[in-house]
């Protein structure tokens, strides 16, 4: 399990052509406990993807510090579900998943994951023949399959139909409870965030910083209960007027 301490003083995109330099993140502090499920909620374009890229070490051009602590002397394994599926179009579904595996013994659980995502019949298919929703599910399997200690998810359920999204959400929670790992989940769907998270972090528009953090008091057994989730959503919107414009 991995705990994260994030301190970003400044993240600025340099000017390109006619566009002015863009200050994406300013003075952002955030902590994620080991095994915690945190949802980041904010308006689109506010810099959430930038934040995930910085945590995943894909973007090193920022002023600040990210410390990932897995209790071991190595970088924790990070599973990253990008906003677009990013599958290799010249590799089949199965190959796309297997290429990401770091240890061959993980191969055994791939079958189970593919079955759970209802993609067993599509294993030998090339991604161009998949719908966007299917491609997203493949990308999710790819991130799950490595047994990540930290899972970064960037709006992974967009364009998956509602029943499948619910199913995948439940699977995500099930996996998270079986093999505890920390999750940072970006969404702008407040209902989805409440159904999943231990804690909601609301982020401002660009330059991004934390507006407020709210713990979700609903027990894990009750997360499937739409009434409880809707009631909590209403309460949050009533108690925190500053976030109404964000969701």
């Amino acid at each position: 399990m991995t705990s994260i301490r994030i301190q970003i003083n400044r993240k600025c995109y340099p000017a390109v052509g006619q566009a002015k330099p863009n200050l994406a993140i300013e003075n952002l502090q955030l902590q994620v406990q080991a095994g915690e499920f945190v949802c980041l909620v904010g308006p689109s374009g506010c810099g959430k993807t930038t934040l995930l890229n910085i945590i995943a070490d894909l973007d090193q051009d920022f002023d600040g510090e990210i410390s990932l602590n897995s209790g071991q002397h190595r970088r924790p394994k990070i599973g990253y579900v990008f906003q677009n599926p990013r599958l290799l179009p010249w590799c089949t579904v199965r190959e796309n998943i297997e290429l990401a595996l770091t240890e061959p013994q993980l191969n055994q659980q791939v079958d189970a994951l593919i079955a759970a995502m209802q993609l067993t019949a599509m294993q030998q298919v090339y991604p161009e023949r998949l719908s966007l929703g299917m491609s997203r599910r493949v990308a999710i399997i790819r991130a799950f399959a490595i047994n990540p200690e930290l899972l970064l998810m960037d709006e992974p359920f967009v364009s998956i139909d509602a029943p499948t999204a619910r199913q995948v959400r439940n699977l995500l929670l099930q996996l998270w409870q079986q093999r505890p790992h920390s999750v940072l989940f970006v969404t702008h769907d407040l209902r989805e965030a409440i159904a999943l998270a231990d804690r909601l972090v609301f982020l401002s528009a660009s330059p991004m910083s934390v507006i407020t953090e709210i713990k979700v008091p609903i027990s894990r057994q009750e997360r499937d209960n739409d009434v409880a989730i809707e009631a909590f959503r209403q309460r949050v919107l009533h108690d925190y007027p500053e976030i109404r414009s964000l969701v």
Binding site: N53, A56, L58, I78, Y80, F82, N84, R86, L88, W90, C91, L99, A100, T102, R142, I146
Partner: peptide, 24 residues
């Protein structure tokens, strides 16, 4: 760039990146 980032994120080796991401 998206695919190259994906490869970096999954710790593809240089050979794997060349063979499966760059060459195709």
């Amino acid at each position: 760039q998206d695919l190259l980032e994906m490869a970096r994120c999954h710790h593809f080796s240089k050979r794997k990146t060349l063979k499966y991401v760059i060459w195709p």
